[in-house]
Design a protein around this nucleic acid. Structure first.
Lengths: 136, 136
DNA sequence: TATTATTTTGCAACATTATTGCAAATTTAA
DNA sequence: TTAAATTTGCAATAATGTTGCAAAATAATA
């Protein structure tokens, strides 16, 4: 599915900046931060537009946020079966300390944990740090 | 162990601001962000001092950082057996969507995951979102 | 205890990151 | 093609984080 179709599927206006951001995600292997995207746009679009685009994409379920230990907010493309507000991104995220690239390990499912009495569980995120395949 | 003893144990000068920050952590049940601490200090110490104090504590292993989905950097007290650079914080973190408090579930150990071939694993973080005991 | 050496603090300045309102431009609907 | 709705970019502002440096506080020494 190309960028334009994805936008239409999620009922979003097809605009230059949205197409660019989406294509950047599709080309990038791993997860991207706001500044990653901004630098790849090479000043073509305003910072504010990027912020708003990312927010819109996240709301629609086109991208999902990845938790990080520092304060970088990372985003990555969701799989096709994500819908508004209901993401299926229960995969493990891997942060390589060598190349510093964060990737979604789609094939590794987050294991189930048993919480103490009284806790109701909603969503689980898991981030593994280490050295990736390409850097080992 | 009181705040002063902890500082001494980690060979840190005992200062006003360090004692205050440490006591704030000891009183707080959950994890705290920089701004949480700043507001609890009620302007008694400079912003910069808080940043440096948190950094020092993290380096020494008095506190550890918690990954978050937004860009808030959260810190929480480590258990007593943490040493410089070698933390034993392999427990699950719980973020309550009601009270927005993040707590360390010390009794819940992060489960082991099997990574694809070629990945070397170092450290695993796990954040569970849901409703906590007090808010249910 | 008094003095010196070391460390820490607070201020100022600055850099980065994020948010909001609003008019102009673009996209979609008619 | 035109009108309505949405999106964009600019400006202004807020929040967050960093660095250098002199003054103050703490620790080490005599």
């Amino acid at each position: 599915m190309n960028a334009q179709d994805i936008l239409k599927k999620y009922q979003l206006s097809v605009t230059d900046s949205r197409l660019s951001v989406l294509q950047i995600f599709m080309q990038a292997g791993g997860a991207l931060s706001h500044s990653d995207i901004e630098s790849r746009l090479k000043g073509f679009h305003d910072r504010v537009t990027v912020y708003r685009t990312l927010q819109t994409f996240a709301e629609k379920g086109i991208i999902h946020q990845i938790p990080t230990i520092d304060n970088a907010v990372l985003y990555a493309l969701c799989k096709e079966d994500c819908t508004d507000g209901h993401h299926h991104d229960n995969h493990v995220h891997f942060l390589c300390t060598e190349c510093e690239i964060t990737t979604c390990l789609d094939e590794v499912v987050v294991p189930v944990v048993k919480l103490p009495r009284g806790f109701r569980q909603n969503d689980v995120k898991m981030i593994v740090t280490g050295v990736c395949k390409s850097c080992k």
